[in-house]
């Protein structure tokens, strides 16, 4: 058990290096001249020279790569070109908002999606099931920033129930500010989770051991929740991982629409201001999150499925 977790951790380290290498390739090698790509074709030669000096672009590439890795490991991302604040501080300031938004919307999404999926699975091809089919199709098609804008227009602008932007201060005000952005992401995730739950539960309910449970005299509710959903948790836990990551990527647009602080907002603002160190750090943060979530899901999987536990 502990061995398996350690093995997974060990497995994540080369992945981390691979991701860092890809970030390096994407930002330093692919653009040809990173200075020109970062500052744009209009930049004057003095600025370009200054940029190359600050980012160490005059060193040979292998040396740049080693510096790049070393800085990443120490979480030293340099200073912002615009505000001259250490990038690490900027991230520390914005990260909690993104994490809060992700957690709240994933929880809301699961609370909406899983019961809906179970409800539809037990009423196959009847109105609830068709409703879920349509809900999930629309949820898949509607872009998150559009849904965010519509909710903002309807509930904040027209009805005035929620504040228009910002993150608020204090717990209750913060909750008031986060509900609408979280709802945006939660609706999209619940469409996905609802569909996945329906499929998994239907698959499990057709299994022989579910018939055994009925033959024991278990009532339908117990059959569905104790035997059906419990076994459907295996595919669902993968789905939850995907949901968390999708919420993370969706948070970029949602933070922009609701004008909330966060890592996505930081990255997008940095792109428009050509703040190279912040872009680089933002990209690395997201990549790091992806690896972390996958790692955690791998470990969770072991807890859910005794079969994997026994093998290790």
């Amino acid at each position: 058990m502990a061995k398996y977790v350690l093995y997974r951790l060990g497995d994540a380290i080369p992945t981390l290096f691979l991701v860092l290498t890809l970030v390096f390739i994407a930002m330093r090698i692919l653009p040809g001249d990173p200075a020109l790509a970062a500052l744009g074709p209009m930049a004057d030669p003095v600025q370009l020279a200054l940029f190359r000096e600050r980012m160490g672009l005059n060193e040979p590439l292998p040396l740049q790569y080693i510096y790049f890795l070393w800085d990443a490991i120490r979480l030293d991302f340099g200073r912002s070109f615009i505000s001259d604040v250490p990038v690490a501080d900027l991230i520390a300031r914005n990260l909690p908002h993104t994490i809060y938004l992700t957690i709240v919307s994933v929880l809301m999404g699961l609370c909406l999606g899983i019961p809906f999926g179970v409800f539809a699975a037990t009423r196959r091809n009847r109105p609830p099931d068709n409703a879920l089919r349509i809900y999930s199709l629309i949820g898949y098609s509607i872009p998150d920033f559009y849904l965010a804008a519509i909710l903002l227009i309807v509930f904040s602008l027209q009805l005035g129930w929620f504040p228009i932007n910002g993150a608020g201060t204090g717990f209750w005000d913060g909750l008031h500010h986060i509900l609408l952005p979280a709802m945006t992401l939660a609706m999209l995730k619940s469409a996905f989770m609802g569909r996945l739950t329906r499929t998994s539960v239907l698959e499990v309910l057709g299994r022989d051991y579910v018939r055994t449970a009925r033959a024991k005299g278990a009532r339908e509710g117990r059959v569905i929740y104790r035997h059906g959903l419990r076994n459907a948790m295996l595919p669902l836990s993968t789905g939850i991982g995907i949901s968390i990551l999708a919420t993370l990527s969706g948070s970029v647009a949602v933070e922009l629409v609701f004008n909330r602080p966060g890592i996505g907002r930081l990255l997008i603002d940095a792109i428009s201001e050509r703040d190279y160190p912040v872009i680089q750090a933002g990209v690395m943060m997201f990549a790091f999150f992806v690896i972390l979530v996958n790692l955690v899901m791998d470990v969770v999987y072991v807890f859910v499925d005794p079969r994997i536990r026994m093998k290790s």
Partner: peptide, 16 residues
């Protein structure tokens, strides 16, 4: 009435 099924490999819940 108790019942025993044909497929012992799949008739038991694998996670209990």
């Amino acid at each position: 009435i108790g019942m025993v099924f044909q497929e012992p490999m799949s008739s038991l819940n694998p996670v209990m």
